[in-house]
Write a protein that binds this DNA or RNA. Sequence first.
DNA 1: GTGGTCTAGACCACT
DNA 2: GTGGTCTAGACCACG
Lengths: 131, 131, 131, 131
Amino acid sequence: MYFNIDPKKNVPLYEQIIQQVKEMVAKGILQPNEKLPSVRELSSQIVINPNTVSKAYQELERQEVIVTIRGRGTFINDAVVQSNDPKKTEAIREALSQLVIDSHYAGIEKQTLLKWIENFYTDLGGKNDER
Amino acid sequence: MYFNIDPKKNVPLYEQIIQQVKEMVAKGILQPNEKLPSVRELSSQIVINPNTVSKAYQELERQEVIVTIRGRGTFINDAVVQSNDPKKTEAIREALSQLVIDSHYAGIEKQTLLKWIENFYTDLGGKNDER
Amino acid sequence: MYFNIDPKKNVPLYEQIIQQVKEMVAKGILQPNEKLPSVRELSSQIVINPNTVSKAYQELERQEVIVTIRGRGTFINDAVVQSNDPKKTEAIREALSQLVIDSHYAGIEKQTLLKWIENFYTDLGGKNDER
Amino acid sequence: MYFNIDPKKNVPLYEQIIQQVKEMVAKGILQPNEKLPSVRELSSQIVINPNTVSKAYQELERQEVIVTIRGRGTFINDAVVQSNDPKKTEAIREALSQLVIDSHYAGIEKQTLLKWIENFYTDLGGKNDER
DNA sequence: GTGGTCTAGACCACT
DNA sequence: GTGGTCTAGACCACG
């Protein structure tokens, strides 16, 4: 459970936690039913306000990535829930569109983008192999 | 020059303007040296405060997408400037990484992402074909 | 943190703030990671609108002189970033050229200019001596 | 009489004319009593609004760089008038101070600045030799 | 008419 | 409490 939180980024701290938990789950670093550190533990580990960690956990629970069992703690959900929400899909499509345009201005070629995507999926694929 | 500004999005209004101008330039809808609507014009067209449009224009000028000539107006820059800024590149790489993870949770397959990218580049490529 | 803002100058207020922060950083009066006054604090201190201070801070952040951490405040950047931007260099060269011509008309001699430059560098050098 | 006017610069057009006339006079390219093009001539030559040229000429006359003789035209003044205005001197000193700080951030070394000044004075010196 | 600057005042997200 | 965004309205320099 190593977090890499950077307050200087303009991504909110709680959002960074969410992203990294989801990333670790997607990559299989965090396994189903594995226990997460408590809010207090994590907040002292990454030197952050407990409320911020709490907010991240609440959002992760809402997204069904983790579940909280009263008195026992928070755990990774059994299975990755795929939302298949059309709104979410459209949002991602738009974000990708903007990313292509930004790449254009940054001088990044299509091949580079495609290669990156392949690599990112390889990272996720490692998880599937272990199944 | 049709803008599609949505105040309900959590993307700031001025950011939406920036994105759409950059998109239109990248797609060749806006040609080099073409005049943009004046701050007042655009602000009344999309029913927004002039200061907000002004902020967008100033940021676009900083990115060298447009140039403003005092007392005359703002114009698309002669050539698209590609920054080749390593920081910008890394930021895009990270954003793409996060996008892949989000796609994973949204149930979007790799093939879909790759197809979208191809399509987006076709939109940009149309500009080159006309040259 | 003493600012000397003069609304009568034709230099914009936000530009005066930028200049003075950069000056204090270059002279070592403001140290890396030091906290700047909050937007509201500074705006009430120098009797100016908060938006104007905000604009100055945002530009300083863009120039990587300061970093802002959400909900916590703004801080001097760890290291002074030297841009080495050819455009910026050329702009300074031109400004210096104009300044020499203006000096000519103002009856300022070359030796005076050279002496002033030496003095200004002594002010900056004091910082290096303390290292 | 070649002018190099760039509307894209954020220096006002009339200011650019003033600067270039003063530069040409200081370098001896324009000699005392030499006739300047009329407002209409110059405005059509550099494709600019006549009012803008007029404004530049008025300011140059105020600074006693040129003189207008009714019905005959405008001419370079007999001698370069050196103002020795303390306010002007202080303004130049401040501008130089800011320029040194900007150089610091742009990664320009003191030696480079000094060398540039020497070069600029060599350009002016050519005039003195011809006297 | 053009953009640039500034003020006053409001609301919001983040910590 | 922190900065970020937006509105409304004003004044100014420039062309």
